[in-house]
Design a binder for these strands. Structure first.
Lengths: 152, 152
DNA sequence: CGGCCAAATGAAAACGATTTTCAATTTCGA
DNA sequence: TCGAAATTGAAAATCGTTTTCATTTGGCCG
């Protein structure tokens, strides 16, 4: 890792090593806060901005990429060999992955047909996971139109 | 429109009418700021939060939906009969649409296979549009590793 | 029509995640 | 070892989004 970074012009530091290691140990779709918490468990002197900067760095060197779902938090997803899309459960907000291999070919074709040179594909499918469907069978009622409209 | 909203429990107001009209007159992928500017051209007394709230309302009643591209700005995209994906040019940040009909079927199948009940699909293809490819043939050089790493 | 109450508005403040600043420290190649 | 460049931590700045609150307005009902 140290060597890998060096070739890209970056230095290795104890904090960086800890942050990188923690990131790769964690599950996917890690937020800055989550990683920060984890890192602090090992070394509470590491600053938030350092975690943030290193997460950005991880992306920059191609080991991860940002995932944005419009819930206000940026998550970082380890780069994988096989491209994958995300199921986003609108109830529990959990992400699940699915293989995108079959579809990527088509997206490439669509791109070419539209004179667009693609560098990445993202597919997000919103909906409800099984767990949420099972736990909540009761629909919610709307009594206060304003509350509904102004407090999503 | 007034009637449509009434059935959903919302009232019509001059501001709302102006905002709705402006939104539908504008192109796609409108941000709050953009719409706010446009609205203010007609009535400078309209507040920012009113524009924001009405954009949310437009989404709530199903006439548009939010689009998030991780550039920090939420955009609002008119709902269309035919589902479409987005080409996102990493250079000029412009969005172009493409038809998603063919692919939606497959996404539905993938969802079913994964025990997920989908309510919406999003496809984003990052890359470079023709215009940007033509205008910039020169690659940028990296002299300052930190600047690159910390100031994206 | 006149009144009433929920909905809507505008201004300002609150929020919250992200990003930058800055002084001090550390890394690593020469 | 030395020094330039990168890195760090804390704090502050940013900036889009969201809420609060006092006030006004819309539209239903008698």
């Amino acid at each position: 890792m140290r060597e890998f970074l060096r070739t890209k012009g970056f230095k290795m530091t104890p904090q960086r090593e800890l942050i990188f290691r923690s990131f790769f140990e964690m599950g996917k779709h890690v937020s800055v806060d989550e990683l920060y918490d984890k890192v602090r468990q090992q070394d509470s002197s590491v600053g938030y901005s350092t975690v943030w900067r290193n997460l950005k760095l991880i992306c920059k060197v191609g080991l991860a990429e940002e995932v944005n779902l419009g819930d206000g938090v940026t998550r970082y997803d380890r780069a994988t060999e096989t491209p994958h899309g995300h199921f986003y459960c609108v109830d529990c907000k959990k992400l699940t992955e699915f293989d995108m291999d079959n579809i990527v070919g088509q997206l490439a074709i669509i791109s070419r047909d539209n004179d667009f040179v693609p560098s990445g594909f993202k597919i997000e499918i919103q909906g409800r996971c099984r767990a949420c469907r099972e736990k909540e069978a009761t629909p919610k009622k709307t009594t206060d139109a304003q509350a509904e409209a102004q407090k999503p």
